[in-house]
């Protein structure tokens, strides 16, 4: 085994994907090669970071969306033989999105605390993700956002998810959101 072999396969030794014999060979080499040992320390620290990095996946909310999409697709398959007016549905959906966005923008311009310092606001982490029902009207969304003191900060995503920033998140507000008849799903980030 030459130096190139040990350099090249060190990541595989660190992630434990080598055989027991290969590992034993590496352990011997690490005792003799100071540079290789330092490289191993670096890769171990890197692996710890990658393993420990906190990432919040969509979880149950993603599953909810998936199930709904499957349901919608199976409905569409049933109605496949009927004449299609896809463009009309699309136009209505696009108009609704425009109306919601316009309403939200108007609402935002009326807020005094719209701009926050680059160092962050004092409630930057109180974020929830919501999905509105397909028949939610802009007026209803606006009323709800005002009542919970929240603003839409991102969205909609391709699947209709909005991120809402709140001054505070507590059980009461989450319950209010869950019970609102214009919300399909809500999850705290």
């Amino acid at each position: 085994m030459n130096k190139q072999y040990y350099r090249e396969n060190l990541p595989m030794y660190i992630n434990g994907s080598l055989s027991a014999d290969e590992c034993a060979d590496f352990e011997q080499q690490l005792l003799q090669d100071e540079e290789l040992k330092k490289e191993a320390d670096f890769l171990s620290a890197l692996r710890c970071y990658v393993k420990d990095e906190k990432v919040t996946s969509p979880g149950e909310m993603g599953l909810f969306k998936l199930k709904r999409q499957i349901k919608e697709e199976s409905k569409n398959n049933v109605t496949d033989n009927q004449p299609k007016n896809g463009w009309r549905t699309f136009a209505i959906a696009a108009s609704l999105v425009l109306v919601v966005q316009l309403g939200v923008m108007i609402g935002m311009t009326q807020q005094q605390d719209l701009f926050v310092p680059l160092s962050g606001s004092d409630y930057a982490e109180n974020i929830v993700q919501v999905q509105f029902t397909s028949n939610a009207r802009e007026n209803d969304i606006r009323q709800l956002l005002i009542s919970i003191d929240g603003s839409i900060i991102q969205g909609p995503s391709k699947n209709g998810i909005y991120r809402i920033e709140l001054k505070k998140v507590n059980e009461e507000i989450l319950k209010q959101l869950q019970q609102a008849n214009i919300i399909d799903f809500v999850a705290e980030e």
């Binding site: 996946s57 969509p58 993603g62 998936l66 999409q69 991102q154 995503s157 391709k158 699947n159």
Partner: peptide, 8 residues
Amino acid sequence: FEAADTLN
């Protein structure tokens, strides 16, 4: 957002 859409 894009990662969540990709998962879906």
